[in-house]
């Protein structure tokens, strides 16, 4: 499945409080969380973002809390995938576990500008900048993580394992 949408750029060290502030953590309802996605980094983001759009950020995206509400909010807001130079480790795990597509690509994070039209081929890890006619490669996803994705997320992976 190809992803295509507009790029929304963010800086370095975007923390989980910026992605979903704790004042909204009295619920875990994805639709509710989506309304406040990225609120403390860009208060208008949830209104502006369209299905398939892409978040493009600098290093250490998702640092801070372990709240899975952060990738849940991004996914429920309709974001197609996240592209960053690097990720904080708990966010990285959580994104795979809940099925939010994320890609690590320093060259894409540098090359893509706000508003660029981006298409991503998740299987190939190939990111195309349709606005600028550029292509970037994402760091390959470790095999084990690919198995989790193929199973449909960690819970399905575990259920399948228990049934064997």
């Amino acid at each position: 499945m190809m992803i295509q949408g507009k790029a929304w750029k963010f800086g370095a060290d975007v923390d989980t409080d910026a992605i979903i502030p704790a004042r909204y953590l009295n619920t875990s309802d994805p639709a509710e969380l989506a309304k406040y996605c990225m609120e403390d980094a860009d208060p208008e983001f949830a209104n502006k973002v369209k299905p398939g759009d892409v978040i493009v950020a600098d290093k250490n995206f998702g640092c801070g809390s372990s709240r899975e509400h952060a990738p849940i909010a991004i996914k429920a807001a309709g974001v197609g995938c996240v592209i960053a130079k690097s990720y904080a480790r708990i966010f990285y795990r959580n994104a795979f576990n809940i099925g939010l597509l994320i890609f690590e690509s320093p060259e894409a994070a540098d090359g893509i500008k706000e508003g660029d039209e981006i298409s991503v081929d998740p299987g190939q890890g190939l990111i195309k900048n349709l606005t600028r006619g550029e292509e970037y490669r994402a760091t390959p996803v470790p095999d084990f993580m690919q198995q989790i994705i193929a199973a449909g997320g960690l819970i399905d992976y575990v259920s399948q394992r228990l049934k064997k």
Binding site: G64, S65, S66, R67, E68, I90, N94, N97, L154, L162
Partner: peptide, 30 residues
Amino acid sequence: GADSHTCTYGGLGAFSTGVGSTDLAAAMAL
């Protein structure tokens, strides 16, 4: 622990680390 500050117990000489809720769910079962 599904809390990023689970790493606190390293003060005791334990290995401890924060994970998300889904990782916790899997560990609760397995």
